[in-house]
Amino acid sequence: MSPINYVYLAALLFTIGAAGVLIRRNAIVVFMCIELMLNAANLTLVAFSRMHGNLDGQIMAFFVMVVAAAEVVVGLAIIVMLYRSRHSASVDDASLMKL
């Protein structure tokens, strides 16, 4: 088996996550789907790291994780705020950007 299969798997997961972002309305689930996409990206990084035989890919994946953690913290805080003011975690309810 070639390690490229990991990359195929990552592509599949990434696509699933993206579809979830587009389809789901619950902001928290949308967030989880984004996490899924990030993880898929990480998987490719790790697989490439192994294929190329150096650790830069793993470092990159590490940074992605840290940034994702920061993003989750802020994002969830925003969701809590939204829920407080609107009593809804639906991304469709926050549609003030139209006329």
Partner: peptide, 13 residues
Amino acid sequence: QNGFARSYAVSMF
């Protein structure tokens, strides 16, 4: 421009 973040996400995607 319907204000729905998901529509924008679709166009981005």
